[in-house]
Simulated scan of single mutants.
Amino acid sequence: MKLVKMSLAAAVLLGASAFAIDNVKVSGDAKLFYNTNDTGTLSLFDKDNSYADTALRLGVTGDLLKGVSFGVTGYAISTLGLENNLVSHVWEGTGADQSKIGEAWLAGTMGKTTVKVGRMELDTPLAFSEKWSIIPNTFDAAVLINQDLPDTTLVGAWVGKSNGSATTGDEYVVMAPSLAFSSFYQGAYAAAVVNNSFKPLTAQAWYYDVQHVANAYWLQADWDCQLVKGVKIGAQYADIDLKNSSADSSAYALKVAYAGVENLTLSAAYSDTDKDGALNVANIATTNTTSQSKLYTEAWWNYGYVGTAGAESFNVTAEYNAGFAKVGAYYTDVSNDIATSTHEMTELTVTASKSFGPLDTTLAYVSTDADDQNNGSQYNSVQAYLTLNF
C-alpha cells in the first residue's frame, strides 16, 4: 500500500494542539473482507471465484469554537496482493491501492438547530450511505436539523455530489465509493419530519425533489406495541414520481417483530411494489437496479430485487445471542408477476458473529437461487468479515 502523502485526517490530528482545537477524538478500524462462491463450474474457495479487499479507516472529530465542530475521515484501500495469490477478484473499486477522504465537514449548533456542511455520510430512506462494502459511499451535502418543536425533529438537506457510482469488469460490487465524486443528478433537496409525541410510536415523513428527474416521498411508522410485551409493528409506504414519465414507482411494506424472549429477536415482513415503476424503490445514490433498499423485506446480501417493479417479497429473520456467538438466520423470498421479469430470488443466510476484544468477526453462509444469476441455478457463498477497531 502506497501511503506517501499524509492524509488530511492525519494532518488535522497533528495540528490540533497547535491550533487549540478542543475535544479531539480519534477513531478508526482495519477491515479484511472475503467472499467465495461456487457459481459456474468452479467450487468454493477456488481462486477464480473468490474476492477480497482490505481497508484502513481513520476518523478525527473536534471542536473549533463553541458550537462549531469538524470531522474528517480518511480511507486507505489495498488488496495487499491477495489477487495474485488467494483470490482473482477485488471487493471494491478498480483494484488499485488508493487513499481518499470520505468525510470532511463542519457543523455549527445554535440552540436546538444544527447545520452540517461538507462531505459526509447520509442516512435517509431513499438516499443513503450503504455499509455492506469495505467502505461506504458518501455525499457532498448541507443538512439542517431543528428540534425546537416538542418530540419533533425537522430535517432539510441539499445534496450536490456523491461517489456511489457503478463499476464494471472484475469488481465484485456494483457500488464504487472508491471512485471520484460526481454530480448527484442535478442536485437534490430533501425534507423530513420525525415525530415521537406518542412515545410508543415513531413516525417519519420524507420528501425529495431530485432536480429534473423525480419527486418522491417516504412514509414510515414504527410502533412499540404496549398490548403485547415485546411486539413491535411497522408500516412503510414509498412513491417515486418521475417528472418526464408516467412510469412512477411505489411500494408498501409491513413488519411484525417479537423480542419477548431473552436474547432472541424474531421478525416477519411483507412488501409489494406496483407493476409500472421505472425505478426500484431503493437507494437512488448507487446503481438503482442493484442498490440496497430500506424496505423491511430487504435481503441480507442479494440487493436489487425487493424494490423492483412487480415484486412481492417476504422476509423472516431470527437472531439469537447464544453466548459463544451471536447467530442469525435470514430468509427472503421475492416473486414477480410481470411475465418478462427476471427478478425472482430466494436467499437463505446464516451468520455467526463474535467479538474478541477490539476484533469483530463475522462468518456468513449464503444460499442464493435467482433467475438472473448463475443461469438460474442455486449456488452457495461463504463470506468472512474481520474488523479491528481502535
Rank of each mutant, 00 (worst) to 15 (best):
Q220G: 05
V174T: 15
L201G: 09
D241I: 06
V193M: 00
Y189Q: 00
L242S: 04
Q204V: 14
Q211R: 11
L242C: 02
T273V: 10
A268E: 07
D276N: 11
V256D: 03
L201A: 15
Q204G: 15
V213M: 10
A216I: 10
S197H: 12
K243A: 09
A238N: 13
A216L: 06
S249N: 00
W206R: 10
Y258D: 00
V174N: 12
F198M: 08
V231R: 07
Y237C: 07
M175R: 14
A188L: 03
T202H: 06
V174F: 14
I233S: 03
A278G: 08
D272L: 15
F198W: 10
A205K: 07
A235T: 10
G230P: 05
T202A: 10
A269G: 01
D209M: 09
F198Y: 15
D224N: 10
V173E: 14
K229S: 11
Q186H: 11
S245Q: 02
T265D: 11
A269W: 11
L227F: 06
Y237L: 05
S178Q: 03
D276V: 05
Y207F: 15
W206P: 07
G187N: 02
A180N: 13
A247G: 01
F181Y: 15
K232T: 05
A203T: 12
A269V: 15
G230C: 04
V231L: 14
Q204H: 12
A205P: 09
A257V: 00
A251R: 00
Y217P: 08
V173I: 14
S178C: 09
D248Y: 00
A268Q: 10
Q220L: 13
F184N: 00
K243I: 05
G277Y: 10
S246K: 11
D209H: 02
L219I: 07
T265M: 10
N195E: 09
N244E: 05
A205S: 15
S246H: 09
D170G: 13
K199C: 01
G260W: 11
Y270P: 12
T202Q: 08
Q220M: 14
Q211M: 10
A192W: 08
K229P: 08
G277K: 06
Y208P: 09
V194Q: 06
F198N: 02
A176R: 12
Y258K: 06
A235L: 09
Y189H: 06
Y172D: 12
A216Q: 03
